[in-house]
Design a protein around this nucleic acid. Sequence first.
RNA 1: GCGCGAGUAGCUCAGCUGGAUAGAGCGUCGGCCUCCGAAGCCGAAGGUCGUGGGUUCGACUCCCUCCUCGCGCACCA
Length: 565
Amino acid sequence: MNPDELLRAELTRVARVLGAPDTVVPVLERPRDPAHGDWATNLAMTLAKPLGKKPREIADALVALLDLAAAGVAETTIAGPGFINFRIDAGAHAKPLAQILEQGAAYGRSTGGAGRPVNVEFVSANPTGPLHVGHGRQAALGDAISALLEGSGWQVTREFYYNDGGVQIENLAKSLWVRVAQRVGIDVPIPEGGYNGEYIKEIAERFVAEHGAPSPEVLLPGAEAIVAGSRPADAALFDAMRRFGVAALRAEQDLDLKAFGVRFDVYFLESSLYTDGKVEETVGMLVQGGHAFEQDDALFLRTTDFGDDKDRVMRKRDGTYTYFLPDVAYHVTKWKRGFTRAINVQGSDHHSTVTRVRAGLQALEIGIPAGYPDYVLHQMVTVMRGGEEVKISKRAGSYVTVRDLIDEVGRDAVRYFFLMRKGDSQLVFDVDLARSQSEENPVYYIQMAHARLSGIFRVGEVDAAAVTADGVQWDCLAEPAERELVASLLDYPRLVAGAADALEPHRVAAYLLETARLVHGWYHKHHVLGEPEHIMRARLALAKASRQVIANGLAVLGISAPERM
RNA sequence: GCGCGAGUAGCUCAGCUGGAUAGAGCGUCGGCCUCCGAAGCCGAAGGUCGUGGGUUCGACUCCCUCCUCGCGCACCA
């Protein structure tokens, strides 16, 4: 057991001796100021009320009873309003580093998930345009959350949901038709709700190259129909364009994701919910359950029975379904596929769907828990370029794509940029700044720490694999900079576990920055190579452990850990 | 108007679920390369933690008031 675990146990024992209620659990934490010691507890303060005594008196009583030899406590002090500070002797303090050397890449992993399946859905962009910055944030976030869950023992399925069945796709097909028509000189505008982006022109080029140019006799009336708000008479050609457009954009998005280093296990097509009859089936169940009603020729679901502020339309007057219904049907498939836990990473502009989808699932009454699925909502990304905000609009054709960012700033820097912030704070991405400061991006500071540590082994011609805990004199790591670094490394498992629990990867990012700072400080102040044998061996062990922890943390964020830069 | 989120250093943001003197990066100013990487280190300046109350030994953190900003409030997704 590590010193902190022994301390906790001993504090609990002594608290009971003094008559503390069972509900009091000693809290042991790292003092902000290392001068206060390695661990501190506020136990005396929390006991003041139940015991009816002053905190300082209780602290004195506690200290008198504590048997701290096993935990390697070298010094105990009472400070401030009643904190009890413990200083661990250097040897006991650093000894747990052996665990890092033994566990290697597995250090920091835990088994809380117990192999249970969890579905993490993210990005889920409509196949109507390239992935833009907002999707980038979501890709980085979803991927890191997945990695965190995998690290804590969950069996993760990364899933991408394609909304390929709705009005948006219809508009895509119409836009493509118009672009094809424009190529042969027909003068028609992009329809209302259509997509103006240059990429539609490129896809139109490719469509003509592969399918040949349709005749103006077909294109013109079709274009006129589109302008008039309906669809072309030549359904076969229109459908071919729709499929071509979707396929082209999916391929494009796949390339973006690949460039970003994100892989999905499942691509789920909304259209399959219709072809497999899942939508009909879900409607049937909702009607049968008695939570549906007809009004104004539309079919409503009484979502207000489940906490929504108004009832929602499932089937419109024209007989088609709103997005809401397939969403519910889709989540039913998640549940039925065995995902008793599902997490949806979405932009906060979708937050109104949270209550709705959950209400729909409740109305089915098939045993899905009320809080299913979980949502991680991130705030919007504002893009600045040339000192102005770039209004992201696929329809207007103005956006900054994920690939633009990666090309300009680099994959690691982009990932870090998106992950260093909490998901629920808004985020300004200044493209010019990101490019000009790419050298200053904090991610390089962290990677540099990894590279420097690697350099020790390279320059010293020391085989890192041969560095083990055997025979290391841990009490050699007694310098303040070493003690701080050691403490940080030993905190890593608790940190990642907390980040996984809260679904907050930014904690790992912040931790890595802090740990890298300690590495740089230590590296600068203390030498490893050329020191007396026993000191060098201890420091090599510390260097190896530090490098391992940084590499493990970067892996969670999907960022590389280079040996040299 | 209602719901969700955010207001912390000049700028961009952390603050480990209530602890001791509120931190980092960038920017500004000043130091450090015969030395395992100066993509680094050390120091300085810079704060009424949006506002006003409350809870308690103790509040950036929890509760309430108000202000500002973002997002959402469709038979669009």
